[in-house]
Amino acid sequence: MAIWQYDLHLIPRKAIEDLFSTVPPSLARKTFDEVAWWKNYQPVFDYESEIGSFLSPREFWSDEAKAWGEEDGTSIEVWFEQKLVTDIYVRINVASLDVNVLEKLTGLTARCEALFLTADLEVIEPDLQNLTAHIKQSNAFRFVENPEQFLSKNVDRLRVA
């Protein structure tokens, strides 16, 4: 992934509610990795056509996933195991934000009855205002806004990482 991309996972709301009774503000990395989020909540509509209505399908390196959009741009990957969805992974190109695409994405997420999980594992509602507010707080946004300043501010931290 690229530094100018803002990453999200789609997580079924009911799977989160099953686990926590309510929607927590964030997830632990271990929880995110260990739960089969989509196992009991497969999307029940033609999500491939819906994604295809705003992003073009593309070739992908794994035959266990389908991908739309551009690898280093805005992208959606749907991952499968035995034909069942296991992950829906979104990368938004913050360098050329397209509000129409963000709107379609929030619509898709709502139709999947899912929530966004950010790269910081925050759980957020699929709402356009909410999403853009989070994007504007992200490293991807700070980098795009001023790459040199971003690297300058983070150079010491990155050297020891």
């Binding site: 530094i3 996972h9 990795d33 390196w61 794994s62 996933a65 992974y89 790269a119 980098f143």
Partner: peptide
């Protein structure tokens, strides 16, 4: 190479990426 971003793929996805890199 210094990373500027943490890993955001799920463990399942990342495992598949590693399997692909082993092969290709």
């Amino acid at each position: 190479l210094l990373a500027t971003h943490s890993i955001t793929q799920s463990r399942r996805q990342f495992k598949k990426l590693k399997a692909d890199i082993i092969q290709n």
